[in-house]
Nucleic acid binder design. Structure first.
Length: 451
RNA sequence: GUGGCUAUGGUGAAGUGGUUAUCACAACGGGUUGUGGUCCCGUUUUCAUGGGUUCGAAUCCCAUUAGCCACCCCA
C-alpha cells in the first residue's frame, strides 16, 4: 500500500469541469514506522503471547502493565542522558497541562519506578515481574525495526544472586527454543561503576595513543561513551581491539566471582553461550552481567538478528530515588521474532470453526439465529453470514472457512421443526430434529474426527 | 540523523519514449431465484506524489514521500 500524500495543501480545485467527479480526499496513511498487525498474522502473535504468559507464570513471574506515557525525566535519569535512546529517539512532548512526558522507549525504568512507588520492597523478595507491551523509539525504520515495537520482558528485583542472572538468560533462551528458534547467548560482565571507570580510563588512554587511526565517529565515541568504541565495525578498530585492554582484567573481585558463578549456572543448564569481551550495552543502568541473544536461523548478516538484550542493573533503583535494590532483567524484540517465525513457516493452527449455520428466508434466519446461539452456549463455535440472502453465497463462505459441517435452516425446516446437516467432505445430508441439534452436531463431529 | 537501492490494481508480476497499460490471483456479481469446492461469463480497483524535458513519459531528469539495505543505535 504505497500512496503518500503528506503535503497535500495544494489548491487543486482550479478546474471544476475536468470531467466526471472522481477521487475524494486523499487516503490517510500509516504514520512512519508504525505497523498494523493484521488478522492473518495474529496466529503468530498469539503463539508468542501464549508462550510468554505460560513460561513467565511457570517461572514465578507476575504480570505488570505500566502506562505508555511517563515523565521524560524517568528515562533521562534511568536510561542515561547521553544515550542515543534518550538523546535523539524519544517521542517527548509537553502536554496542555505543561507536563514533560514521553512515550516509553523501554520498560525497565518504568517498572523500577513502579516498584519504588508501590513499596514493593515490602513484598517478599525478590519481586518477579513480566510485561508484554509496545515501546516507542524514533529511529529510522527498517525491517524488524519499527518506531512502535513490541517487547516481552522479565525483571527480577531485590536479589543480587548470580543464579538470578542465569535464570533470566535461561528463560529468554527457553522462550525462543520453545517457539522453534535456536539462539546463541553472548555474554560479558561490565563490573561495577567504579571498576568500569578504571577500565574506561585505561581504554581511553589506549585509543588516545592511536587516535590518528580512529574515524571521526569513533573519536566522538571515545569522548562520549568510550566503551562503545569496542562496538565499532571499522576494520582498523577491530584490529586494534585485540590489543586493547579487556574489561575482564579490570573487574573487581566480587564482580569477577559473580560472573564466574553465572557462567557455571549456564553450563549446568546447558545454555549455549559465547563470551564476548566487547559486549557493552547502550543503556547506562547496566552493571555486572550483560547479555544478548542472537537467532541462529534467519539471515546471520542482518544487523537486526539480535532478538533479546538484558543484564543486571543494581544501581537503577537508587538513581530513580529508591532504596538500593539489586535487579536484573531482559527484553525480547517480538517484531523480530515474528519475522523469524514467519520465515521459518512455523506451523500455526488457524482458529477456525467446524460448523457453519446457513439460513434461508426470514423465518429460517430467525430460527438460525437461535440455533447459532444454542451452539455457542454448548461450546461449539460456528460461522455464519446472517446478512446474506443467497444460500449459494453462504455455502461458498462455508467452504472457504473449511468447516466440516453446515446446518441449513430454511422455510421448510422451520415448519417441520427440523434442520439439514450437511457433511462438507462427502456432500451427504441428513434431516434431524432441530431440538436435538446440539446432540446431532456433536455426534456428527465425532464421526468426522474419527476419520 | 547519514549514504545506497527501489516504488505498476488488494497481492504477485510483465511492460525501458509512441495509439484505449498487460497477465495471474484475490474481491464482488451472474450462469433462471433451497446448496460449496471444478468450469464459464461479467464488474470494481493501478503507473507513489509534485514538477520538468519532449510533438508524445509508466518508461528520461529533479524534488518529495515511503519501503528495503548499510551506518548510527538497538529489540
Amino acid at each position: 500500500m504505497p500512496m503518500t500524500k503528506k503535503n497535500t495543501a495544494k489548491p487543486k480545485e482550479a478546474k471544476p469541469a475536468a470531467g466526471p467527479a472522481k477521487k475524494g480526499p486523499a487516503p490517510i496513511n500509516l504514520v512512519r514506522g508504525m505497523k498494523d498487525i493484521l488478522p492473518a498474522d495474529q496466529p503468530y502473535w498469539d503463539m508468542m503471547r501464549r508462550k510468554a504468559d505460560e513460561l513467565s507464570k511457570a517461572y514465578g513471574f507476575e504480570r505488570i502493565d505500566t502506562p505508555v506515557l511517563e515523565e521524560t525525566a524517568l528515562f533521562v535519569r534511568g536510561v542515561g542522558k547521553l544515550t542515543d535512546i534518550v538523546e535523539k529517539e524519544m517521542y517527548a512532548f509537553d502536554t496542555v497541562g505543561g507536563e514533560h512526558v514521553c512515550l516509553r522507549p523501554e520498560d525497565t525504568a518504568p517498572i523500577v519506578r513502579s516498584y519504588i512507588q508501590h513499596g514493593m520492597l515490602n513484598l517478599p523478595q525478590p519481586v518477579k515481574l513480566w510485561y508484554l507491551a509496545p515501546m516507542f523509539r524514533h529511529d529510522r525504520p527498517q525491517h524488524g525495526r519499527y518506531r512502535q515495537f513490541w517487547q516481552y520482558g522479565c525483571e527480577i528485583l531485590g536479589d543480587s544472586a548470580a543464579v538470578v542472572d542465569a535464570q533470566l538468560i535461561f528463560l529468554a533462551y527457553l522462550f525462543l527454543k520453545e517457539l522453534g528458534i535456536e539462539s546463541t547467548v553472548q555474554i560479558n560482565s561490565i563490573g561495577t561503576p567504579e571498576s568500569r571507570a578504571n577500565y574506561k580510563n585505561a581504554l581511553v588512554s589506549f585509543f588516545r595513543s592511536r587516535r590518528n587511526k580512529l574515524s571521526e565517529e569513533d573519536k566522538k565515541r571515545l569522548l562520549k561513551n568510550p566503551l562503545r568504541v569496542l562496538d565499532s565495525k571499522d576494520p582498523a578498530v577491530m584490529e586494534m581491539k585485540a590489543e586493547a585492554p579487556q574489561i575482564v582484567d579490570w573487574l573487581d573481585e566480587d564482580s569477577k566471582a559473580h560472573f564466574m558463578r553465572v557462567l557455571e549456572f549456564l553450563d549446568e543448564m546447558k545454555v549455549p553461550y559465547e563470551l564476548n569481551p566487547y559486549l557493552v550495552r547502550g543503556l547506562d543502568y547496566y552493571t555486572r552481567t550483560v547479555f544478548e541473544l542472537y537467532a541462529n536461523s534467519g539471515d546471520q548478516d542482518l544487523a537486526q538478528s539480535a532478538v533479546c538484550g538484558g543484564g543486571r542493573y543494581d544501581g537503577l533503583s537508587e538513581v530513580l530515588g529508591g532504596r538500593p535494590t539489586p535487579a536484573a532483567g531482559f527484553a525480547m524484540g517480538l517484531d523480530r521474532i515474528f519475522s523469524l517465525l514467519k520465515e521459518q513457516n512455523v506451523a500455526v493452527a488457524p482458529e477456525t470453526a467446524d460448523v457453519f449455520v446457513a439460513q434461508l428466508g426470514d423465518q429460517g434466519r430467525k430460527r438460525a439465529l437461535a440455533v447459532f446461539e444454542e451452539l455457542r452456549k454448548a461450546g461449539i463455535p460456528a460461522g455464519e453470514a446472517f446478512s446474506k440472502d443467497s444460500i449459494k453465497a453462504q455455502m461458498e463462505l462455508a467452504n472457504k472457512l473449511k468447516v466440516k459441517i453446515v446446518v441449513i435452516i430454511g422455510q421448510k425446516e422451520v415448519l417441520d421443526g427440523t434442520a439439514v446437516i450437511r457433511d462438507m467432505d462427502s456432500g451427504t445430508q441428513e434431516i434431524v430434529d432441530v431440538r436435538k441439534i446440539v446432540h446431532e452436531i456433536n455426534k456428527k463431529l465425532g464421526q468426522v474426527q474419527a476419520h
